[in-house]
Simulated assay, not measured.
Amino acid sequence: MRNFNLLVLNEWLKISKKRSHVIPYVILLVLSLVVGYISHTFGTDMYASAAEFTSDMLRPTGIGQVLTILVIIGTAGIVSREYSQGTIKFLLIRARSRTAILASKYVTVLLYTLSMLLVAVAALFLSGVVFYGLSGGEAGISTILTSLLYSMVYCAVYATIGFMLGILTKTTGVTIGATIFATMIDKVVIPREFYKYVLFPNLDLSAYQNGGAPMQGMTLSFSIVLLCGYTALFLLAGFAVFRRRDVA
């Protein structure tokens, strides 16, 4: 376990040492303040408190989608960049299994996603306090945590897709482009029975709030099971290819 933790730490340092590392966090802070200002200026009755503003904006239909794109851009090259820079050979000659190396990279992706989400929560809440105050409305910490969970699932699944594509294509640009394109079309709903088994309509679990559903015949448990299945499939494909690929 100690060796695995060191692998994760090493991967995190690779990300954090980049000059552009802080840019996504700054973007989230600035964007939160801008959105807070605009919503307060042009729709003063839109939110009753900072908690209400934060919980609503965290969802994939709000800043949550921008957050997902930032996560994709920040983590898409965690595997593919090793190939393009030629460092993959040095990585694999260490006394570590390929599975452990790839697993440490995936854990780092999830940690990066979580860090972005926490910064987003803090930035949105700060913006909400400035423009809407702390009191008012029915939303509270539990509402924010619920939206955080929805956004975490949404971001994590897309981060997993990007992680898999980075392994399969070995190209950061293709990985970013394909995954961001998916975020742009995932709101499209095809009114056919088979479509409820597709990944996209199951991604935004916040659609089930207040008794709603993305499509008729879908339930929260149905979407959770389907998301777990798709995520497992993406990881199996990525790990299988990585373990068998010749890097000589």
Rank of each mutant, 00 (worst) to 15 (best):
N3F: 13
F4N: 01
L6K: 10
L9Q: 13
N10Y: 04
N10I: 06
W12H: 03
I15S: 10
I15N: 10
I15C: 10
K17A: 15
K18R: 12
I23R: 05
P24N: 05
V26A: 09
I27R: 01
L28C: 04
L29W: 03
V30N: 13
L31T: 03
S32M: 03
L33S: 11
V34S: 11
V34M: 14
V35G: 08
H40I: 08
F42R: 10
G43A: 13
D45Y: 14
Y47G: 03
A48Y: 14
A48C: 14
S49W: 01
A51N: 12
F53N: 00
R59C: 10
P60H: 09
P60Q: 12
Q65F: 15
T68V: 05
I73T: 00
G77T: 00
I78P: 07
V79P: 03
V79Q: 09
R81H: 12
Y83K: 08
G86P: 07
K89N: 11
L92P: 01
I93A: 12
R94M: 10
A95Q: 10
R96I: 06
S97F: 00
I101P: 00
I101G: 00
K105R: 13
L110K: 00
Y112W: 11
Y112F: 12
L114W: 15
V119N: 10
S127A: 10
G133S: 03
G140E: 14
G140D: 14
I141S: 15
T143I: 14
S147V: 10
S151I: 03
S151F: 07
Y154V: 01
I161K: 05
G162C: 08
F163S: 03
M164L: 14
T171P: 13
V174F: 05
T175N: 04
I176S: 00
A178D: 04
I180K: 07
F181V: 09
F181A: 13
T183Y: 04
T183A: 02
M184R: 10
D186F: 07
D186I: 03
V188H: 13
I190L: 12
F194K: 15
K196Q: 02
V198P: 08
V198N: 08
F200G: 06
N202L: 09
L203M: 07
S206H: 05
N210C: 11
G211T: 09
A213C: 03
P214K: 10
G217L: 01
M218Q: 08
L226P: 04
G229D: 04
G229I: 02
A232W: 15
F234Y: 06
F234S: 00
L235F: 09
A237C: 12
G238F: 06
F239M: 08
F239S: 01
F239Q: 05
R245Q: 07
D246A: 08
V247L: 09
